[in-house]
Design a protein around this nucleic acid. Structure first.
Length: 635
RNA sequence: GCCGGCGUAGCUCAACGGAAGAGCAACUGAUUUGUAAUCAGUAGGUUGGGGGUUCGAUUCCCUUCGCCGGCUCCA
């Protein structure tokens, strides 16, 4: 019998260990360091008795499993605390999640934010008491009886097959239905914090009753908890809604909920982003098109949106005809495809559109630029032969990764979603398409997650996810095959055999939504855009009024070099002007006073780097212009 | 859409069933400034909208709109 220590080294257990608990077998020192153990690879409690030949692994809070153990145990402690403060509260479930845990409750009376402190205090009490977590196994019938006053638990137990054995855990007075394992006792949760109260549907279904969810987090030390709370605060400071206001990029107004208003500086960023996008797409062989925002009802009936997506669409009546505001760009793009006859020789045909779409999202889901009701998709539709699919998908993936790298998003999480239960098309079509997507990913040597059955009804897809500073992941890029549209619109091309055939159609986006992507990069950069994207790239700061003319002439040179430059002509102290421009996160400042005027130089300051010293005007202009250059395509 | 919270000056926030306030921003004047806040003064409000209770409502109640935290949703 061996124990594998966290550092990977092995420790042999004495012969007499069989039959004793893990804690006894490994001794008090190791037991104190362990939050749990694995026995033959399965996460277990420290007081589990050992069998002959068991392989034991020590789980500490430094591992993901250990952290989960800690947090899940903390959720039990929170449930106990909450039921102590509000007797009669019905408990639902309390798992560990990324960065913490939650527990869902059904309270006998409404609770408020102030209760968080009371829950926290109760939790700390029971942690101080070092109550051991005790595991017990009972029959399904026993469990139903034990939890007869807990309707949510009863529902969970009833879902288990007859005759199953059910494990329950007790610490102090609190008994919970739980697969386990847990930390040995409550004192092993050194740092815990109750964070917030929210609503959540029982079992995640919107037709179920709404429960009260309480979020918390736990860490192996107070220090790590403090660091986590500091990270949350930093993330709050970087919230794009806050920075959008501070940097005067965009705003929202009650008169148009969910529809962003872009200010001049925000438009500079958007337009620069689009310049970059157009250059990348031209280099990758895309043509750009533009289709109308309002199209007649009949088109949406043909595309299927009228039947499947009506609830999310905006409508209008013009000259007694029904029109819809487009929620997607494909039908319009398809009309362009159909406006001429196509040959296989044109393929692959790549038609991109920065399409403004409107979707009537539920009011509760709106969230800054991340979730809006009108946004610009960087859409493209690719028409090709079946044998070209793999190459085209490879091209899309490469384009996505190249463009993401430009913004420093190195880690992109990819998911391949396959045929759902309800789908159109033949099994053979799906198999071929899924294989082409998988082969494209494999050809590039990329890891991806497989989501069986998660594809759209009309075809399989690859989704690309990036993570924002708050740790939320956002789907930006997508690459989907579409079996539906070509049929519905009877798309054709003339093949080598001079016969009519149906083309393969691919939808894809790279940035996803320009608005959402802007929100993501605002947070990603903390508002301090790289020079090529910054709304104002340089500001000339005259020391006194008499230096304004010199500052203007310096600015004129920078503007002539294609830079976005301003002169801070306010009659304020130098310190004040520097502070204000730093807070606007302008990449470069050129301070000019008597010394600079006399020497014909500028004093350069870079955001976040401070004073870089004096430079000649020519060198400063050339240096800044070089740094403000749009990244190259790398093609 | 659902659960909960919040809407007070341009922004961040106080106060309170009994005369709506601060800091920053703005404006005016003075200062002409050397690498993250010069000083003084002035102005700024139908307390999101509507209704009700009350002698009196920014405060309490109802309603509506919006925002925030989640949930569901994101084809």
């Amino acid at each position: 019998m061996n124990v594998i220590l966290p550092d990977g080294s092995e420790l042999a257990l004495p012969e007499g260990a069989t039959g004793r608990t893990v804690a006894e077998a490994i001794g008090p020192r190791l037991a104190k360091a362990a939050l749990g153990v694995t026995i033959n690879g399965t996460l277990s409690d420290l007081d589990t008795p050992l069998s002959q030949g068991d392989q034991v692994g020590i789980v500490t809070a430094q591992s993901k499993e250990g952290l989960d153990l800690l947090r899940h145990s903390a959720s039990h402690v929170m449930a106990e605390a909450v039921t102590r403060v509000y007797p009669g509260t019905k408990v639902a479930i309390g798992p560990s999640i990324k960065d913490g845990f939650y527990y869902d409750f059904d309270f006998p009376e409404p609770i408020s934010e102030e209760d968080i402190t009371r829950f926290q205090e109760e939790m700390e009490k029971s942690i101080k008491e070092a109550q051991p977590f005790e595991r017990r196994e009972v029959s399904r019938e026993e469990a139903l009886d034990l939890f007869k006053d807990e309707p949510y638990k009863v529902e969970l137990i009833r879902d288990l097959p007859e005759g199953s054995t059910i494990s329950i855990y007790r610490h102090g007075e609190f008994l919970d239905l739980c697969r386990g394992p847990h930390v040995p006792d409550t004192s092993r949760i050194p740092a815990v914090k109750v964070l917030s109260i929210a609503g959540a549907y029982w079992r995640g279904r919107s037709d179920n009753p709404m429960l009260t969810r309480i979020y918390g987090t736990a860490f192996p030390s107070k220090k790590e908890l403090e660091e986590h709370l500091a990270r949350l605060e930093m993330a709050r400071q970087r919230d794009h809604r806050r920075l959008g206001k501070e940097l005067d990029l965009f705003s929202f107004h009650d008169e148009a909920p969910g529809f962003p208003f872009f200010h001049p500086k925000g438009m500079v960023v958007v337009n620069t982003l689009l310049d970059y996008w157009r250059r990348e797409h031209a280099a990758a062989g895309y043509q750009e098109i533009k289709t109308p925002i309002i199209l007649e009802r009949t088109l949406w009936e043909q595309s299927g949106h009228w039947d499947n997506y009506k609830d999310n669409m905006y409508f209008t009546k013009i000259d007694d005809l029904d029109f819809a505001v487009k929620p997607m760009n494909c039908p319009g793009g398809i009309l362009i495809y159909k406006s001429s006859q196509h040959s296989y020789r044109e393929f692959p045909l790549r038609m991109a559109e920065l399409g403004l779409v409107h979707r009537h999202e539920l009011s509760g889901v709106l969230h800054g630029l991340f979730r809006v009701r009108s946004f610009t998709q960087d859409d493209a539709h690719l028409y090709c032969l079946p044998e070209q699919v793999e190459d085209e998908v490879v091209g899309v993936i490469e384009l996505v990764r190249r463009m993401y790298r430009t913004f420093g998003f190195q880690k992109v999480h990819m998911e391949l979603s396959t045929r759902p239960d309800k789908s159109i098309g033949t099994a053979e079509m799906w198999e071929r398409a899924e294989a082409a997507l998988a082969k494209a990913l494999e050809r590039l040597g990329l890891e991806y997650q497989l989501n069986p059955g998660d594809g759209a009804f009309y075809g399989p897809k690859i989704d690309f996810h990036i993570e924002d500073v708050m740790g939320r992941t956002w789907q930006c890029a997508t690459c989907q095959l579409d079996f539906a549209m070509p049929d519905r619109f009877e798309l054709e091309y003339i093949g080598e055999d001079n016969q009519r055939h149906r083309p393969v159609m691919l939808h894809r986006t790279v940035l996803g939504s320009i608005e959402r992507f802007l929100g993501i990069i605002i947070e990603h950069y903390g508002g301090a855009f790289p020079a090529w994207l910054a709304p104002v790239q340089v500001v000339a700061v005259p020391v006194a009024d008499r230096h304004v003319d010199y500052a203007r002439s310096v600015a004129a040179e920078l503007a002539a070099a294609g830079l976005r430059v301003e002169v801070d002509e306010r009659t304020e102290s130098v310190g004040r002007k520097i502070r204000d421009n730093e807070m606007l996160k302008i990449p470069f400042m050129l301070i000019v006073g008597d010394k600079e005027v006399a020497a014909g130089t500028v004093s350069v300051r870079a955001h976040g780097q401070g004073d870089l010293g004096a430079m000649s005007r020519e060198v400063a202009t050339a240096t800044i212009a070089a740094q403000a250059q749009m990244p190259s395509t790398g093609v």
